[in-house]
Design a protein around this nucleic acid. Structure first.
Length: 426
RNA sequence: GGGUAGUUAGCCAAGUGGCCAAAGGCGACUGACUGUAAAUCAGUUGGGGACACCCCUUCGGAGGUUCGAAUCCUUCACUACCCA
């Protein structure tokens, strides 16, 4: 039985490194802990959620989490893990992004609980008012350039020809200032983050020690890697976002369901709140009946329900079943409209299908399935195009009204998974 | 400011007058096999067409030499390195 937050994070394989004393701190005291995130887009993506879910884990053990939006630091740009200078975002853009992300955080952290409610803060609230001379006297005075140059994030950039602007060089001082501000204002004593944040976090610990004589702590998480070496959280169509407008619940569900066998147990530990016993059972299932993909399904169900709700999950599962089940010709138009609500679609006036109909090749281009007629032809020749879930092998054929299910829908599919719904308009 | 080497398709990279819509690799897409895996094997990967054949556009930009230019010349831009 796990009784403290540190052991919990440890068995989940999350902990990359920590300052001495963190296990004792988390075991003996209820602390306020913060984790920052960059509001560079108007939605979080799945990669962002690991440290935020970790915050939620800490919250469940009685600690008080602060999610800190880098509204101020986002205007500077963190050089950690970045190979080149970043574009600066405008203040308006950042404020808009923070407001969008706020809603998503409510799915992960508990802002309502009486005892230790989560907080969402924005460092723009204090950084933008910072006076340069005061900052240099109070904060800058505590750091030597030698110390700053020794940081990995700075060193790697100096070795490259492009170098590093003074702006980005200063980033760690601002992040340190954040930590001290939260220490002063909220009694925050622990900062967490991805392992690439180690340098910045430790700088904050140093600042609190030197400027306040206080003891603060740092703990960083493993960055999630994938067995096949590709970047986590990306699919053919880009990042997997939490915003259902950007990544539909169906795609979100499919993303998790398609997790590599080699990664699925690790992902269950990283992302879900399943107990050790539950995960052990799923691990056994993976070993004995891999074709059932029970761990994948459990992961997909849990994540989809948590972030998009039970209704969205039910729809995603229903759609998955219909799409990968086989025959769709038996479905009613209403069922099709429902199942394919998440799938990319296009509209086509009925008149185009009348008489001799529209060449299939043209329809594929029109629907965005193929970028050119040549590509459409090749796809058909490869056997990769399905019309209403039946392989369309004849590149010369036309699509007529008779092909439309109940006269309203045509379901195009390229390959195994790429569906496009054509809506026939009167 | 002076010099040297570069700039080729999504990326890396070969090609240095015709056989070049451009080798090879990676990535991506499709098929077979499967579990909506992995691995493997095979095919495809500028656009258009009456599509085993033809046409158009593309090798940093613009001009030129030539029957013919990714390849030679001029010029401009950009990148890297060396010197001031």
């Amino acid at each position: 039985m796990i009784t403290n937050a540190f052991d919990e994070l440890k068995w989940r394989g999350l902990i990359f490194d920590h300052i001495e004393g963190v296990p004792e701190l988390l075991a003996k005291e209820k602390v306020t802990v913060y984790n920052g995130f960059d509001p560079t887009a108007d939605s979080l993506h799945v990669g962002h959620t690991i440290p935020l879910i970790a915050l939620a884990r800490l919250q469940r053990f009685g600690h008080t989490p602060i999610a800190l939006a880098g509204g101020g630091t986002g205007m500077i740009g963190d050089p950690s893990g970045k190979s080149s200078e970043r574009n600066l975002l405008t203040r308006e853009q950042i404020e808009y992004n923070v407001s969008c992300i706020k809603k998503q955080l409510a799915h992960l952290l508990d802002f309502e609980v009486k005892s230790n409610p989560a907080m969402l803060l924005n460092n723009a609230d204090w950084l933008l008012e910072l006076n340069l001379v005061n900052f240099l006297r109070d904060t800058g005075k505590h750091f030597t350039v030698n110390y700053m140059l020794a940081k990995d994030s700075v060193k790697t950039r100096l070795e490259r020809e492009e170098g590093l602007s003074f702006t980005e060089f200063s980033y760690m001082l601002l992040q340190s200032y954040d930590f001290m501000h939260l220490y002063d204002t909220y009694g925050c004593r622990l900062q967490t983050g991805g392992s690439d944040q180690w340098g910045n976090i430790v700088a904050g610990v140093e600042l609190i020690r030197r400027a306040r004589g206080g003891s603060a702590y740092a703990m960083v998480y493993n960055l999630l890697t994938k067995a096949d070496g590709t970047k986590f959280g990306k699919t053919e169509s880009g990042s997997v976002w939490l915003d259902p407008e950007k990544t539909s619940p169906f795609r979100f569900y499919q993303f998790w369901l398609n997790t590599d066998d080699r990664d699925v147990i690790k992902n269950l530990k990283y992302f879900t709140f399943f107990t050790q016993e539950e995960i052990a059972a799923l691990e056994a299932s993976l070993a004995e009946r891999p074709e059932q993909r029970e761990p994948h399904r459990a992961l997909a169900r849990d994540m989809t329900a948590r972030l998009h709700g039970e209704t969205a999950l039910a729809r995603a599962e229903q759609a998955s079943q219909a799409l990968f089940g086989g025959e769709i010709t038996g479905l009613s138009a209403a069922e099709i409209a429902d199942i394919f609500s998440d799938v990319p679609s296009c509209e086509l006036p009925k008149t185009q299908l009348e008489g001799p109909g529209l060449p299939l090749v043209d329809l594929l281009v029109l629907a965005g399935v193929a970028k050119s007629k040549g590509e459409a032809r090749r796809s058909i020749a490869e056997g990769g195009i399905n019309l209403n879930n039946r392989r369309a092998a004849d590149a010369a054929r036309s699509v007529t009204l008779g092909d439309a299910l109940e006269g309203r829908f045509i379901v195009l599919r390229k390959g195994r998974k790429n569906y496009t719904l054509v809506k026939v308009l009167d």
